[in-house]
Computed example of a mutant assay.
Amino acid sequence: MSRLRHNYRIGLATVRGRSMFPTYRDGDRLLVLYGARPRAGRPHLVQPPPSATGARPLSIKRVEHRTDDGWWVLSDNPDEGTDSRIFGPIPYRDMVAKILVRIPRPIGRRRLRRE
C-alpha cells in the first residue's frame, strides 16, 4: 500500500493594504500553510494574474467558490483592492497557501531607554 505524501510547509505572510479589512489590517502577520487545498469561506494567499502594467503581488483573498477555471476569490473590503470581479477566477496552480491564523500583535511594547 502506498502512502500519499503532501508537500505542506508552514510560513509567514504580512498583510499589505486594506482589501481584507476588517478581518486583517495592514501590517498583520499571518501563519500560512503552503500546499493546502482551498475551502470556500476561508482566506487564502493567492497569485493574481498580471495586469496590463505587469505582475501583481501575492494577495490575501477570501475563497468564494470553485469554477471550471479555478477559484473565485473576493476581498473582504470591496472598496479596496482587486479580486475575481476584476481578474476572474484564480487558476488552481496560483492558490498559494491557506491562512491558518493571525499572529497577535504585541501588547504594550515598551521602548528601551538608553542611560
Results as ranks from 00 to 15, higher is better:
15 V>F: 05
89 P>N: 07
62 R>Y: 04
25 R>M: 12
57 P>I: 11
9 R>C: 08
67 T>F: 09
74 L>C: 10
61 K>F: 10
28 D>W: 12
12 L>N: 10
31 L>F: 04
91 P>T: 06
12 L>G: 08
80 E>H: 15
55 A>S: 13
91 P>L: 02
21 F>W: 13
10 I>P: 01
46 V>Q: 01
81 G>H: 08
99 I>Y: 01
13 A>M: 11
57 P>G: 06
82 T>E: 13
89 P>D: 08
37 R>G: 00
50 P>H: 03
14 T>P: 05
86 I>T: 13
24 Y>D: 06
41 G>K: 02
43 P>Q: 03
76 D>E: 15
108 G>N: 13
64 E>S: 14
34 Y>I: 02
27 G>P: 13
93 R>H: 14
74 L>D: 00
88 G>V: 11
111 R>Y: 05
45 L>A: 01
70 G>L: 14
28 D>R: 14
111 R>S: 07
27 G>D: 13
103 I>W: 00
23 T>F: 09
84 S>Y: 06
98 K>M: 12
41 G>E: 04
13 A>K: 05
108 G>V: 03
62 R>P: 09
36 A>S: 12
29 R>N: 09
86 I>P: 00
106 P>M: 03
72 W>K: 03
88 G>C: 15
43 P>Y: 08
105 R>H: 10
68 D>T: 10
22 P>L: 05
64 E>F: 03
88 G>E: 12
59 S>H: 04
105 R>G: 00
82 T>W: 01
39 R>H: 00
94 D>C: 05
70 G>V: 09
111 R>M: 07
27 G>T: 11
73 V>I: 09
58 L>W: 03
25 R>L: 13
86 I>L: 13
88 G>T: 11
69 D>S: 10
98 K>C: 05
67 T>S: 15
91 P>G: 04
87 F>W: 11
63 V>R: 02
40 A>C: 15
34 Y>S: 09
64 E>N: 02
76 D>Y: 10
63 V>T: 09
30 L>K: 02
63 V>W: 01
24 Y>T: 11
74 L>I: 07
34 Y>N: 05
38 P>H: 05
67 T>E: 15
96 V>W: 03
88 G>M: 14
12 L>P: 06
14 T>V: 15
85 R>K: 15
49 P>W: 12
34 Y>A: 09
92 Y>C: 00
102 R>W: 02
61 K>E: 03
72 W>G: 02
31 L>N: 01
87 F>M: 13
25 R>I: 02
43 P>R: 03
103 I>H: 00
81 G>R: 03
110 R>T: 14
82 T>L: 14
12 L>V: 14
65 H>A: 12
36 A>V: 01
88 G>R: 12
59 S>R: 08
50 P>V: 09
71 W>H: 04
97 A>Y: 05
99 I>S: 01
22 P>E: 09
25 R>P: 00
92 Y>H: 13
91 P>R: 07
33 L>T: 05
102 R>E: 10
38 P>V: 02
41 G>L: 04
86 I>D: 12
16 R>A: 14
28 D>E: 06
